[in-house]
């Protein structure tokens, strides 16, 4: 009655062999994927250290202390001081977060709690599409529209800008770019808030808005803060759009939002013509500093997040 018995033994051996092979075979791509982080740190540091070594650049080599504390940056004649750039970068990113966070949180509230499904779905798609717009397009938009707006704002305040190219333009472009990130994470955080808690608040006679601010936002703040951390990370590393509107300030730190500025990333991109030499290698040093700034900012913000989380 039964079908002819399969030649099971041979196949078994083969199957088992392939199974073993798969286990080890899958480890290779996994280790490869994981190794890129190490490669990045290793090789960028190697190149980034070169400008400080007299063995590489002789008399041209950069004094490390001056590099870390300097307040001027010129491609020629090779004066590289990164201190003011770090300060400018943090300043610009701080301001953009200051602008973006309230807008993002309110938008998230609107999408998650205040509108019926089709409208909230539409707005969520809008935010997602904003998140998908490439940096270079925001750069073109920034140079074409935002700088003009900033020029006008400056006139209102009786100030002049370099054709709108200024710290304020940078702040606005960055704010627009981190807004979707913060919004999307806030939406997730707000949606995760326990409904019973909100209903309790409503039952106690609080209005919907009071509930949103006093219960929902307070419970979601840890998640929202995670979004802000991610947004700030993005802003610190954002390059193309920023370089197009930041200007090329040679000295600083400068806290006037109508003056041109210089961020770590814009320094890495602007005036890039060579692929050898000191001016090229110094950009790797800036890259190392950028990585360090991002890591330190992240650690600090995460520590802050833990403290905030404690009281919720």
């Amino acid at each position: 009655m039964k079908f002819p018995i399969f030649k099971i033994w041979d196949v078994k051996k083969k199957n088992r062999f392939f199974d073993k092979l798969t286990y080890t075979g899958l480890l290779i791509p996994t280790i490869l994927s994981a190794s890129f982080v190490v490669l990045i740190i290793l090789f960028i540091t190697e190149r980034g250290v070169a400008p400080f070594l007299p063995s590489q650049y002789g008399d041209l080599s950069v004094n490390f202390l001056r590099f870390m504390t300097g307040t001027t940056w010129y491609i020629s004649p090779n004066i590289y001081g990164i201190f003011f750039i770090v300060i400018n970068t943090l300043y610009v990113v701080f301001l953009s977060a200051l602008l973006a966070v309230p807008v993002s949180v309110f938008t998230a509230l609107f999408i998650a709690k205040m509108t019926p499904k089709p409208i909230s779905g539409f707005f969520q798609t809008v935010v997602e599409l904003l998140a998908a717009i490439p940096s270079i397009v925001f750069g073109v938009f920034g140079l074409g529209v935002i700088t003009d707006v900033v020029k006008k704002i400056a006139t209102v305040f009786g100030m002049q800008t370099a054709g709108g190219i200024s710290a304020l333009s940078t702040v606005l472009v960055l704010a627009i770019m981190i807004m979707p990130t913060v919004t999307l994470l806030s939406i997730t955080a707000i949606k995760a808030v326990n409904r019973d808690m909100e209903n309790n608040s409503l039952a106690l006679g609080a209005t919907k808005i009071q509930t949103l601010f006093k219960v929902t936002l307070v419970s979601a703040k840890s998640g929202i803060f995670a979004g802000i951390i991610l947004g700030i990370g993005r802003a610190l590393g954002e390059a193309t759009a920023v370089s197009m509107v930041a200007g090329n300030a040679g000295t600083g730190p400068d806290f006037n939002i109508f003056n041109t500025t210089r961020t770590l990333t814009s320094t890495m991109l602007l005036g890039l013509k060579e692929t050898t030499g000191l001016d090229y290698d110094i950009r790797f040093s800036v890259g190392v500093v950028l990585i360090i700034v991002i890591i330190v900012t992240n650690l600090l913000l995460n520590a802050a997040k833990k403290r905030i989380g404690k009281f919720s």
Binding site: F6, I8, V11
Partner: peptide
């Protein structure tokens, strides 16, 4: 056919 195929048929 999934099972038999896995056995190499």
């Amino acid at each position: 056919a999934y099972g038999p195929r896995c056995q190499g048929i």
